[in-house]
Nucleic acid binder design. Sequence first.
DNA 1: GATGAATGAGAATTCATTCAT
DNA 2: AATGAATGAATTCTCATTCAT
Lengths: 197, 197, 197, 197
Amino acid sequence: MNDGNEATGQAVVSRRKDARRNQETLLNAAATVFVASGVNAPVRDIAAKAGVGVGTIYRHFPTRADLVIAVYRHQVDACAEAGPALLATGLSPHAALGQWIDLFVDFLVTKHGLAAVLRSDNSDFEALRAYFLDRLVPVCAELLEAAAVAGEIRPGIDAYELMRGVGNLCIGADSDPRYDARHMVELLIAGLRGPHR
Amino acid sequence: MNDGNEATGQAVVSRRKDARRNQETLLNAAATVFVASGVNAPVRDIAAKAGVGVGTIYRHFPTRADLVIAVYRHQVDACAEAGPALLATGLSPHAALGQWIDLFVDFLVTKHGLAAVLRSDNSDFEALRAYFLDRLVPVCAELLEAAAVAGEIRPGIDAYELMRGVGNLCIGADSDPRYDARHMVELLIAGLRGPHR
Amino acid sequence: MNDGNEATGQAVVSRRKDARRNQETLLNAAATVFVASGVNAPVRDIAAKAGVGVGTIYRHFPTRADLVIAVYRHQVDACAEAGPALLATGLSPHAALGQWIDLFVDFLVTKHGLAAVLRSDNSDFEALRAYFLDRLVPVCAELLEAAAVAGEIRPGIDAYELMRGVGNLCIGADSDPRYDARHMVELLIAGLRGPHR
Amino acid sequence: MNDGNEATGQAVVSRRKDARRNQETLLNAAATVFVASGVNAPVRDIAAKAGVGVGTIYRHFPTRADLVIAVYRHQVDACAEAGPALLATGLSPHAALGQWIDLFVDFLVTKHGLAAVLRSDNSDFEALRAYFLDRLVPVCAELLEAAAVAGEIRPGIDAYELMRGVGNLCIGADSDPRYDARHMVELLIAGLRGPHR
DNA sequence: GATGAATGAGAATTCATTCAT
DNA sequence: AATGAATGAATTCTCATTCAT
């Protein structure tokens, strides 16, 4: 990858041109710190990790929720887009739902503390929660509907509630070797099938 | 229990009574504040509610986890004792399990923020988590075993994991009108039945 | 004044008993810092001067205005009480007014920056301003009324306006050798006499 | 106005015109912001209002005082020139003085916070203060001298002190409906007449 | 010359914890 | 044993100022 800048390396990168790259650096640093210390890590820690001043973070992301959203936006979007794609593959709707939930779980359990901030008893991160739900609940609803129409699951399951449940099951999953969120999610999804008796 | 002693003995006894009553006051205050502001409420708030100095709280409960444990010990114990009792009623093991889980859920969802501190990605409250699990996991294991032996549920379910799962499902359940933890727990328990295919 | 504490001196003074003395220390420190750096001096500077932690200041004086009021309350009160006293001495009302204004000016010009925070284009310190005015305007009004009744000054002078005017004239008087607020105040008071022609 | 020059000349001229216009834009923006938020408004606010970068402001006006001076220079100059003009109208010297002071007061009270920065207990704005005084004190002195010679006012009044006094009386006059600086200035000027007794 | 991203010092404020009385 | 005053670390956020482009 020759960027025509061997001598100085990447230390003296352009400011203006690199606004985007800089932002990328910031997001990577934030992601790393979030994994290590959770999404409530001190702003200063993130700044230090990114090698920038705290002011830079505030410039780009006025609130913490802005930063967290930015960090995870791409992955949330990818997850959202995967839903219709799975449904279009010819899998049974229930199988598609299961695989989609797996993607969501994969995403959450690899982000230390992310699932925890999605819990609603937390007045910060309202915007973050809203973003997640706005993106993903409709997708989940579509999958649930398809599975219900196919008679594979009991009807009347609320997509929001299910997303919250799955999200909750993922809390702390990365830091407890005795707890495997996937097992529990598998039970939950299995429970969708059974008649309510 | 010989309390027919002299003046000094009397004093000792009443001092003890006072101490006990004082501690009771403290626990009630803490419980109230925990409900209102979560288990991370400022120590000073709890002290104020109890009408004591902060030093008094630290004397009785050196760490916050100690206090939280003390606040909920009675209820945890009651829940633990309900397990064998339910099994002895003649209910089917699976029904007993379901009712017992309901008791546990009732307990958690009425305690603002309690479920949240049970999550394992939280190095404080380790002792609290340990207490909960020490008391309840064996009971849950017993119920699961009985249900498995009766062929009512799939075998191989880990009691610890299930308790964690149920606990997680209860996080934030008190502050989100769109999320009913009981629905999700019901799904989870229903999922226990299905064959693991 | 034997306080039975010769050996240790005043270094190891009692905490509780000295709440008051401690507060005094705080107020003295604040007064000193206010003189040196104005009433907007950093809280930390005041704390350092007093030899206490910043938390101590916040405990005693939650807002800056609280602190400033406390620092000057005694002197404001003394000034307020001097008004009726002067009127009762048998001086002519105008002379009494003049002397009372002199007291007020003496107070202000010796407090670096105090007069400046009394200016109304300052949304902080509203409480401070209110305290000053509540205490002093009625006294001033009484003196003005007496002088007007005696025919010594033109009628219709508003006490609030006059206090603000005198206060304003004192701004910066301590730091400008070429400006003597007393001269200007003397002109202002002299101007009260003349008919408005 | 020969603009029939070559390409480069044209460019130079318009560059100069641009520079001047740019500066004008800057000063107008600053004046507007000063009125709205006082002369200590954040530099960024001024830059935003002017539609330029903050660097541009620093280039033209290295210190804040430089900017404030530039903003008000025209008006100060106009005020200075009005003194001799008033004296030449045939008005009595005292009347001329009164009208001139009125002009000065008009200027100050319409500039939010301007009077406040003229106070001498403020090490920033030293240059600004100096500019004001250099321009206006001699004019005031001339008017005072004329009035004293005419026997209309007591002698020995220091022009600097009077200017400072009038300036002080104007502080905060724009934000306090109960305080009318003009009333107080009128008293002050009236006080000039009376014998010093 | 203009730009505005980046910097980082500085100030406010909270609250867990200690400890003299 | 109880008290609560004191401490000060930790954190957030702002804004003047610099400087690469």
